[in-house]
Design a protein around this nucleic acid. Structure first.
Lengths: 250, 250
DNA sequence: CTTCATTATGGTCAGTTTGACTAGAAAAGT
DNA sequence: ACTTTTCTAGTCAAACTGACCATAATGAAG
């Protein structure tokens, strides 16, 4: 036995990488952190940050390390979870590369620091990056699309939306997360009722914050609950268009 | 450049496998298909069916192939979806092996045919396989636990429960799937109301089936919808043991 | 044949949740 | 003082849920 790996197996050269879909809500858009590739293939094109898994680290560990290297952020303060594995042959022209995609959610992060591979990293609105003309590298377009759908779905059934808000936050901050990611307008009053009456979602700090305009808003912090029960469903409302104004069925 | 794979990379020997969590509802239990390992490591112990990904196939393709090889079933007739990737160093004593787990759901399947690796494959109740004393190989216990939780959750928000029923089926057949997987008793009347009033969940065939006892039940087939809106939440109802439930205000 | 056990199916009813909407409160700007 | 803006608190009807009760349709038991 001259190799430590499954000697009886049809082994062939494989590399394993992790790719990170790092989301934040900036302004009026869901934005994703992209790096410009500094080498072939896809030199000069945009890609998700990521890198090779090392021999002695697990997948989650590799994701945490890449997150820190690319953004300087501590993954324990962000919401980081596995999204899925992507391994079509031909997804990387250099050979067989299996990538495990992770989804990281965080509050409006500082402009990222230069990382290892990252010649420069920038925030790009997710829908712009998803445009076929944008030219994401590899199959990162599909990964990003899956990530957006995963985020949209998680907002319904979990409290991850608070991961996008720096504490303390207002109910409106939280509502804006939903509105931006779902692409629909939510009734402020109904949203407040739902959020404040769901045990463990948010808890008031007792303070208020004066905004640019209007009545100052009460401040909240995360309440600790992970699941949202009952869920907060994006219901009949249609996405994409129709952002302002109350409904009017008829 | 003497190798086709990322020459600048810290490459090391890695194998990529797919493992299948194949669920069915038999009798009163959620059962999982397990094979007895015919070689080291874990010789003679139970394991999830699976195998190595081949150089020319994608991950989904490998899962479909393994499913066919192990069970003789066509994956297109089952519900097959990726569960996640598991790649801790040391999860396989032979070396670094990354596995991509898939979750397959199907109606009460025939006793599986002998497969390639599978000396013999058997159905085992999931909770028995999850018992630490059962001794699943590798980290398959964790994978199975994740699979059970995924299945439980998917029942809430999707129509995958019908994947466990052979068409045509009765409402009670469908209800039994929920009861077995959630481990709680559901009110037959309320369940029927929910299922039949959710557009696209089930549609009547017009026929009836005489059961062992009681009034014959109307037969249904799948309605085509994938999402379940509004969801069918596992809340208060108690059963064998009593699971969760913020109910009982008075 | 009658009664019973069993399962299917339909309906009621109160409590909860939701979506649409109205209105007041608290700030900044003109 | 008035307007604009945003936050916050309600109202109301519709929908949904969970807990029931009642009836239908079958086979088995007596």
């Amino acid at each position: 036995m001259n190799t430590a790996v499954a000697p009886e197996m049809p082994r062939f050269p494989v590399s394993v990488t992790v790719d990170l879909v790092i989301f934040t809500v900036r302004g009026d858009a869901l934005q994703v952190l992209l790096v410009e590739r500094g080498k072939a293939p896809f030199l000069g094109r945009s890609a998700l940050p990521g890198g090779y898994v090392r021999p002695d680290e697990g997948l989650d560990g590799a994701a945490l390390r890449e997150l820190r290297e690319e953004t300087g952020l501590d993954g324990r303060t962000l919401h980081l979870a596995q999204l899925g594995a992507y391994g079509d042959p031909g997804r990387d022209p250099r050979g067989r590369v299996i990538t495990v995609a992770y989804l990281a959610l965080g509050p409006d992060l500082p402009v990222p620091v230069a990382g290892t591979d990252a010649a420069d990293a920038v925030w790009v609105p997710a829908d712009r990056a998803l445009d076929p003309g944008f030219g994401l590298s590899f199959d990162h377009g599909r990964i990003l699309a899956d990530a957006v759908e995963s985020a949209r779905s998680q907002l319904e059934y979990t409290t991850v939306a608070v991961s996008f808000c720096r504490e303390p936050f207002t109910i409106s901050d939280l509502r804006r997360v939903y509105e931006v990611i779902w692409g629909i307008a939510l009734d402020p009053s109904n949203f407040r009722r739902k959020v404040t009456r769901t045990a463990g979602f948010v808890e008031p700090t007792g303070e208020r914050r004066a905004a640019e305009a209007g009545r100052p808003a009460a401040l909240y912090r995360f309440g600790g609950a992970r699941e949202l029960y009952p869920p907060l469903l994006r219901s009949g409302d249609v996405a994409g268009q129709a952002r302002v104004g109350p409904r009017r069925p008829g």
